[in-house]
Amino acid sequence: MIIIVILGNCKFDADKGELINETTHEVWILPRAERQVLSKLVDKNGVVISKLELGKAIDNGNDLTDSSVVRAIFMIRTFLEPQHEYLIETVKGKGYRLYVRKNNIKKIGINQENSRLLITLAAALSLSILAFFWDSIDFNQQNNPIVKQSKQVEATLIDGTVVTINLFANSKINNQQIDIISKSLVDGFFHCKSTYWSDIYVSMTYDQQVLNITLRGEKNGLSYMRNLKVSDLSMYKKFVYPTWFEEVDICA
């Protein structure tokens, strides 16, 4: 069975251990570490895999160290290019997860025995599926427009509590505002004596008119959440500032 996986502009041939950039036609024959890590991520697509698990040797070779796994991930992401590196997501404290749609994983090759029966079966099934989904097939569908977090930073409170700030942007340009906001949030939380929040999600609308801050945590064993949305249509925008943090009681 040959498994071909489409990763952005690249195609991974798991059988040959090759990663091919279909735009530049560059072929990278993966070294052992990269091949092992990518194969395991493909095998468990959509599932978080720990560094330890990724490092366990498939064959009789030696296990990979954590730093070898991290380096392998870095090398693969580099080859995938920045616009597709999000396909391999870092799940903090847990490991890594590959996000590939099932239709981008192609398994080629069938048992040749009873091939006529299999072909008939496949044709009948294909026709049934095609007939059923005919109306909903989008022939002009583009690549999956998944947007992943563009950055993750941490804010540390006076008491040492760490709050993770996830920043989302849908563009690689004009993201200065969100960088400024993340710094302000880190500074703002530094002054908190304590907080219920464990995760903060920050996003800026594509036209930089609305800032969205979602604060998530737990209070008395229950989920606790706040959504703050700031609209600023002025030319010289100032979405967040220290006194505003006090006004909205950002720590609570």
Binding site: N166, F168, N170, S203, Y206, V210, T214, M225, R226
Partner: peptide, 12 residues
Amino acid sequence: VILFQPSNTVCG
């Protein structure tokens, strides 16, 4: 926690 597009809005 949901990310809405095309506005690029995260909301809990």
